[in-house]
C-alpha cells in the first residue's frame, strides 16, 4: 500500500512540471528562473566583485567589459548587486508565499471542511482583509513591525493569505460533496484521513499554481517595499532599493534603474508564463484510457 502510494505520487508530479517544461514558453520561462536561481546561489563564485565594497573612482561607469552592467553611484558592480539582490527578492518572495500558502490552506481547509461557526469566523476575517489592497495591508504591517527582511516577509505572508484561504475553502467545499468522500466515511475513516488523504491532495494543485503566480506579484511587492526603503536595509542589495536610488540619476546613469527593473520584469513575466504552462498541464485526467 505505502509502496504503491510513494511510487504513484512523484510520477504524477514529475509529469506536471516536466510537461510545463516541454512547452516552448514553459521552457524559456522555466529556463530563466532556473538560471537566475543558480546565479543567485553561486553569485559569490561567479563575480570577482563584492556587493558592498565601494570604489568611488569607478562610480557611474556605463556598461563595459569589466563591468557588464555598469556601476552605481558608489562604484559597485551592478551585475553583482543584481545577483545578490536576486537572493533577497527570490528567497523573500518564495519563502513568504510558501508560508502564506501553508497558512491559507490550513485556514481554508478548516473552514471548508468543518463549516459552521468556525467557517463563519474565518470567512469574516478573510473577507475583511480581502477588501484591502495587498500593498496597503503590507504597508500597515511593515509600519507595525519595522522595516527589514523579517518585516517584509511577514507583510507578504499576511497580504496574500486571504487569497489562498479562499481558494482552498472553495476547493474543499466542492470536493467535500463528491461521493468518494462519503465512501471514505462509510469505511470508517477519521477526519484526519479524509482531510489529508482525500481533500487536500485533490485541492492542492490549483492552490500551488496560484501560489506560483502570486510569487511574481510578491517580487513586485518586495521591490515596492524596497523602493520605499522599507525592505532589506543597506548595504544589502534589493532590486527595489536599487531602483529607488536610480530614480535620482535617471538621466545621468540610466543603467542603475534600468537593469534591476529589467531583472524584476523578466522574472515576473517568466513566473507568470511558467505558471500558465503549469495550468495547461494541470488536469491529471487528460491521460489516455488503457483498456
Amino acid at each position: 500500500m505505502t509502496a504503491a502510494a510513494s511510487s504513484a505520487r512523484p510520477a504524477l508530479r514529475d509529469h506536471l512540471v516536466a510537461r510545463a517544461f516541454r512547452t516552448k514558453t514553459g521552457a524559456i520561462a522555466g529556463g530563466w528562473l532556473v538560471l537566475l536561481a543558480l546565479a543567485a546561489i553561486f553569485a559569490h563564485v561567479l563575480t570577482p566583485y563584492e556587493y558592498d565594497v565601494q570604489q568611488l573612482s569607478a562610480a557611474y561607469s556605463p556598461p563595459s567589459l569589466s563591468h557588464w552592467l555598469g556601476t552605481d553611484e558608489f562604484g559597485r558592480d551592478l551585475l553583482t548587486r543584481i545577483l545578490y539582490g536576486a537572493r533577497i527578492s527570490l528567497s523573500v518572495s518564495v519563502i513568504s508565499i510558501g508560508l502564506s500558502v501553508l497558512a491559507g490552506m490550513v485556514l481554508g481547509a478548516a473552514a471548508g471542511y468543518f463549516g459552521g461557526r468556525l467557517d463563519r469566523m474565518i470567512t469574516t476575517v478573510i473577507d475583511l482583509s480581502w477588501s484591502f489592497p495587498e500593498i496597503l495591508v503590507a504597508l500597515i504591517l511593515v509600519a507595525i513591525i519595522g522595516p527589514g527582511v523579517t518585516g517584509t516577509m511577514v507583510a507578504i505572508t499576511v497580504a496574500y493569505l486571504a487569497q489562498f484561504a479562499r481558494l482552498t475553502r472553495a476547493q474543499v467545499m466542492a470536493i467535500k460533496s463528491e461521493t468518494f468522500i462519503e465512501a471514505a466515511s462509510g469505511l470508517g475513516a477519521s477526519h484526519r484521513h479524509i482531510l489529508f488523504r482525500h481533500l487536500l491532495p485533490n485541492a492542492i494543485t490549483p492552490v500551488l499554481v496560484s501560489g506560483m503566480l502570486a510569487t511574481g506579484d510578491a517580487i513586485i511587492l518586495e521591490a515596492t517595499l524596497g523602493f520605499f526603503g522599507l525592505g532589506a536595509q543597506p548595504p544589502t542589495p534589493s532590486w527595489g532599493a536599487m531602483m529607488s536610488s536610480g530614480t535620482a540619476l535617471l538621466f545621468k546613469a540610466p543603467w542603475i534603474i534600468i537593469f534591476p527593473g529589467l531583472a524584476a520584469a523578466i522574472t515576473v513575466v517568466s513566473i507568470n508564463l511558467f505558471g500558465d504552462a503549469l495550468i495547461a498541464g494541470l488536469d491529471v485526467r487528460s491521460r489516455p484510457r488503457t483498456e
Partner: peptide, 29 residues
C-alpha cells in the same frame, strides 16, 4: 456494513490508483 454508490465516476478518488482504492478500507481500519 458497506455501501456501493450510484455514480462510479465520483465515488472513486481520481488521485488514487485502483490498488489504493481497494486498499483504503485496510488503512482506515
Amino acid at each position: 456494513m458497506q455501501m456501493v454508490f450510484q455514480d462510479p465516476y465520483s465515488s472513486l478518488d481520481p488521485r488514487f490508483t485502483i490498488e489504493q482504492v481497494v486498499g483504503e478500507p485496510f488503512t482506515v481500519q
